[in-house]
């Protein structure tokens, strides 16, 4: 984004293009009313909680178990995507084969498919008598209604992020870099490990973080497959919903603030990563 910014002739405030005041006014007003005011309500509500109440709400055993599951399963999902995502991106960027266009389009399905649909579909496929679940059960592997199912759903929702971060970098990678490595004596495997992967690394890390962040907040696709057993398969967003349904607004708010803090930190990290990745892509 920074590279793009630099190439734009900057029109200064009061520059030639009209409409600055109107555009700024509308943007700030809309953003303020729809985004900042409600988010402010969360912070305001949290500030009315007593410290003891807040600590009790966010460190209860159920909350701790939920953090563990949410962070753990999100991490697993992001790691799985960080392993398979580059393979998918590589195949889409480098090879031609029948059905490639369909495969390419399907990568974005988790973006486009409503999460409740993804949730019931994954549950039905991986439950004990589902298409794939019945075979896994024979091996003693339980996916649906177990932490593995949560990780599976979170892998699904995070899938497009790694692929779509890595794929453009791979497509734009100067083929001469790989040729240079080959002429210098490096075999294919070594070229990939020493030249291609380091070039992909910033984008891969960005995709990993995006995938992790998305997984952390995910709700719809998880609630069906997880079974929602407190202390075992209850994710943090579900715990917030549970608290709300019990009219425990304070508890919901407290945990919500923790989640929001985590999201903010991830957002900052992702912004920094993206800046880094872009810097790496300039020659």
């Amino acid at each position: 984004m920074q590279a793009a910014l630099r190439s734009v002739p900057l029109v200064r405030r009061g520059g030639v293009l009209p409409g600055y005041g109107l555009a700024l006014g509308f943007t700030v007003l809309y953003l303020g009313l729809l985004v900042l005011l409600p988010l402010g309500a969360l912070v305001l509500k949290a500030s009315t909680l007593s410290w003891e109440g807040f600590v009790a709400a966010v460190t209860g055993p159920r909350a701790l178990a939920a953090y563990r599951l949410s962070f753990g399963a999100s991490l697993v999902g992001a790691v799985v995507n960080a392993v398979f995502g580059p393979v998918v991106a590589w195949v889409l960027a480098r090879y031609d084969f029948p059905g490639k266009a369909v495969l390419d389009a399907l990568v974005d399905l988790p973006f486009a498919l409503p999460t409740s649909v993804a949730g019931i579909a994954l549950t039905a496929v991986y439950s004990q008598n589902g298409w794939l679940g019945q075979h896994l059960t024979k091996w003693g592997i339980q996916v649906a209604f177990a932490p593995a199912g949560v990780a599976m759903a979170l892998t699904f929702v995070g899938l497009p992020f790694v692929v779509r971060s890595v794929q453009p970098v791979l497509e734009d990678l100067d083929p001469r870099l790989e040729e240079a490595a080959a002429v210098l004596g490096a075999g294919r495997l070594r070229t990939v490990a020493w030249v291609v992967l380091p070039a992909l690394f910033p984008a891969l890390l960005t995709g990993f973080a995006l995938s992790f962040a998305r997984a952390l907040g995910e709700y719809g696709s998880v609630v069906f497959i997880s079974g929602n057993m407190p202390l075992r398969t209850e994710i943090v967003p579900l715990l917030i919903v549970t608290r709300l349904e019990q009219y425990d607004y304070a508890g919901a708010t407290a945990i919500g603030v923790v989640m929001l803090g985590a999201s903010f930190m991830l957002l900052l990290a992702i912004n920094a990563l993206q800046a880094w990745a872009l810097r790496g892509r300039k020659r």
Binding site: A41, G217, Y219
Partner: peptide, 15 residues
């Protein structure tokens, strides 16, 4: 984008 959907609902409930 970075706020959990559940939080996106919660903030309006709190408001």
């Amino acid at each position: 984008f970075s706020v959990s959907p559940v939080l996106s609902g919660l903030i309006f409930v709190l408001l």
